[in-house]
Nucleic acid binder design. Structure first.
Length: 734
DNA sequence: TAAACCGTTGTTTTT
DNA sequence: CAACGGTTTA
């Protein structure tokens, strides 16, 4: 029962927020716009549920990134005082499979392959099949395999559906890839989800057990779930039917990872009688920032109407800054940051965002030259480092001796004279006799085709392996130190890389120290799982006294006083790859996702937003002239200040700069506006009576042509004056 | 057989 | 500008 004002869980909530937090049993969907208190809903709801008597260990909360999970776990803990399982889909599945995978006939010591590992396997297969690497790019094939898996298609099914030689080859690679992973007792990221679904299908009694356990399932960022994730969430809530899904379609930025907007847009299809709460009030940003962001996102056609509004003051204008080139841009951003810090801003409250990771390089240089503290939130970086991968491979091989990928990496690092030829012979022998590479290497004395040198090298490796396996360690740290010692890893690094390598290793040891502290008992499997699934260890430390630099993707879910979005150019922010997917030159799905990314970035800002672009940028090592992003031309006139170093170059896109009314609504949807009573020609003009499906009837106040677009202001009877943006074509058709 | 060298290739985003 | 693959050299 909610108490009135003094209730710490609901006291500071608005009515719709309270409704979501206190909602009773049954499926609940919360559509929560940027800055509307999304995380707060989930944490408070968990607190509310435990207060209602639900045991914390019968609540499952799922988020998308490890960072978000950590953050939420912390908040819940302070609120509830007890541990609630807050995790990502992938690590939830990994843990579940460690317990249950025997039911599928697999070993619980399975390895987890990341994208790079998968790519290696695919590359190897392509070589074996002698495929032309230009027609069959390994990276593309890996992506295609992942696509099949996300649709839950087996290799057999994909073979059945394959059309043409290309797709047939593709499914043959897929089949071999599966064989390879099964033989190595390995699962890739897609398998973690897929195997859980398989398990639930094959063993309903296991599913029933988990359904029983979780009285409530809460999923954050539901707009980014893919089909397997949707199915897992659906399966888990199957008994008690208590699912809370929170999300915002306008922040869906993971199509390339299989995110399906339908999961959230058609939520009530799969979760009948779902209660829906919509949160449209933004508490985060100034009115100027929110107007700019809303205007930008309103250019998306495939979009459900949602109006974000705020009571905040206008604040400073959004600043658009133009620079000669990307170095100039980086330098001036750093200078501006410096001025902000001198003016009293906290460095960790100023973020610089960009589309691609490599854009951080000039920024790093500029920050360093001004002695400004910064932290790169490099999401893949650290665990992709060679040294980490090498040492990890040893641990992986000890845990899972069948893992051929781990064997291949460990066997000749440091160099012990096991080269391509030896490996090839080992491979052939392994294929003939069956069994893993490690097992085959153990029998190297029986392999006639090996010369004595290679044989000796393999024997040495096996002895090392047995030594490492024989020693029990109390902590992962002591094991790792022992490993580095025994392998002579550091000594084998060439002198010019030594310093760098030592730094990486120190960093790893530091991470492991923390891991041991969190997870006493020195579990190597747990360590591997963490390092396979956590990508952002290096990630943001919100308390560090440093300016975070990160991609727009990794900024999702965060907020800062000041935000810079850099590199706003055609080809960078709508990324060229998205533009290439536009066969008709019109905008489509890919560009709209880029616009959502822009929207996510803009709505990270509380007080100040800077949008920067350069006229020249280094691409593939060559300086190229680039045009400003179309997204800049979509900014409203009000509350935006344009600045330039030299003579300003006009923004290259002819899109209208829409005039603003009290609400920031723009619509471009064809046929949404119907002329009820016009000037007789069917043309839209001032005074015409019109109807709109969501806003009802109204009278056209004015029609302004602005290049490619026509801005129609309509006084709706119920909603007041709104601006609608139509393309000229649309108006012709009305 | 393995390491050093050179030319070609193509670069989003992340669990 | 890097990372990869193929080629030459020790």
């Amino acid at each position: 029962m909610p108490k009135r004002s003094a209730d710490p869980i609901t006291a500071d909530l608005t009515e719709p927020q309270r409704e979501a937090v206190l909602y009773g049993d049954g499926p609940l969907l919360v559509i929560a716009g940027a800055g509307s208190g999304k995380t707060r809903i989930i944490t408070r709801r968990i607190a509310h549920l435990t207060r209602e008597g639900i045991a914390p260990d019968r609540i499952l909360a799922v988020t998308f990134t490890n960072r978000a999970a950590d953050e939420m776990r912390r908040r819940v803990e302070t609120l509830v005082g007890r541990d609630v399982l807050v995790t990502t889909f992938h690590s939830f599945c990994a843990r579940l499979l460690r317990r249950e995978i025997a039911a599928l006939g697999m070993q619980p010591s399975f390895s987890i392959y990341d994208q790079a590992d998968s790519a290696r396997v695919v590359r190897q297969i392509c070589k074996e099949m002698k495929l032309d690497p230009t027609t069959y790019q390994p990276a593309r094939l890996r992506e295609r395999i992942s696509l099949h898996k996300r649709r839950l298609q087996t290799p057999e099914q994909s073979t059945g559906q394959a059309v043409g030689i290309g797709e047939q080859t593709e499914s043959r690679v897929y089949a071999r890839y599966e064989e390879r992973l099964r033989a190595s007792n390995a699962l890739d990221f897609d398998d973690l989800l897929g195997k859980v679904i398989e398990l639930f299908n094959v063993c309903p009694e296991i599913l029933r057990q988990y359904q029983e356990t979780y009285l409530h399932v809460l999923v954050d960022e539901y707009q980014d779930t893919n089909l397997p994730q949707h199915l897992i969430a659906h399966a888990l809530q199957g008994k008690h039917r208590n699912i809370t899904a929170v999300g915002d379609p306008d922040q869906m930025i993971y199509t390339w990872r299989g995110a399906r907007l339908e999961n959230i847009l058609e939520f009530d299809k799969d979760f009948p009688a779902a209660h829906v709460v919509t949160l449209e009030r933004n508490y985060r940003s100034t009115a100027n920032i929110l107007r700019a962001a809303s205007t930008c996102i309103s250019f998306n056609q495939m979009r459900h109407d949602k109006l974000l509004w705020t009571d905040s003051e206008a604040g400073e204008p959004v600043r658009v800054m133009q620079f000669r080139d990307s170095y100039d841009e980086a330098q001036r951003i750093a200078q501006t940051v410096q001025e902000l810090i001198e003016g009293g801003s906290e460095p960790n409250e100023i973020a610089v965002l960009y589309r691609t990771n490599y854009q951080s390089l000039p920024l790093e240089d500029s920050f360093a030259s001004l002695n400004l503290p910064y932290q790169i939130v490099d999401t893949v970086g650290f665990f992709e480092r060679k040294q980490v991968k090498d040492l990890r491979a040893y641990v992986q091989l000890l845990v899972n001796p069948d893992d051929d990928e781990a064997f291949l990496r460990a066997v000749n690092v440091p160099r012990r004279g096991v080269g391509d030829k030896t490996i090839e012979k080992l491979r052939q022998s392994a294929r003939r006799a069956g069994g893993s590479l490690l097992r085959t290497a153990r029998r190297s004395s029986e392999l006639d085709e090996l010369d004595s040198r290679s044989r000796h090298a393999l024997e040495r490796f096996c002895t090392l392996y047995d030594d490492l396996a024989s020693v029990q360690h109390k902590t992962v740290l002591s094991f790792l130190k022992h490993l580095i010692e025994e392998t002579g890893y550091v000594e084998a690094v060439p002198p010019e890389e030594r310093e760098d390598a030592e730094e990486v290793i120190d960093h790893l040891l530091e991470y492991v120290t923390q891991y041991d502290r969190r997870q006493p008992g020195g579990d190597l499997v747990g360590f591997l799982e963490q390092t396979a699934l956590i990508s952002d260890v290096d990630g943001l430390n919100p308390r560090a006294h440093a300016v975070p630099l990160m991609t727009l993707h990794s900024a999702k879910g965060l907020e800062f006083d000041v935000v810079f979005i850099s590199g706003l150019e055609e080809g960078m922010l709508p990324h060229e790859r998205a533009l290439r997917e536009n066969p008709y030159g019109g905008e489509d799905y890919a560009v709209e996702e880029e616009r959502r990314l822009m929207h996510v970035g803009m709505t990270r800002a509380r007080r100040k937003l800077y949008l920067t672009h350069a006229l020249k940028r280094m691409i593939r090592g060559m300086e190229q002239t680039v045009r400003p992003s179309r997204f800049l031309s979509e900014l409203p006139e009000e509350g935006v200040a344009w600045e330039s170093d030299g003579p300003a170059v006009t923004v290259g896109f002819g899109a209208a700069r829409p005039v603003q009314e009290t609400q920031f609504v723009l619509e471009r949807k064809r046929a949404q506006l119907k002329v009820l009573d016009g000037d007789g020609n069917g043309r839209i003009s001032a005074g015409a009576r019109v109807a709109h499906p969501s806003y009802g009837e109204g009278v056209v106040a004015s029609v302004d042509s602005a290049g490619k677009y026509v801005l129609v202001r309509v006084a709706f009877l119920e909603r007041g004056v709104l601006s609608l943006l139509l393309s000229s074509d649309d108006v012709e058709r009305l």
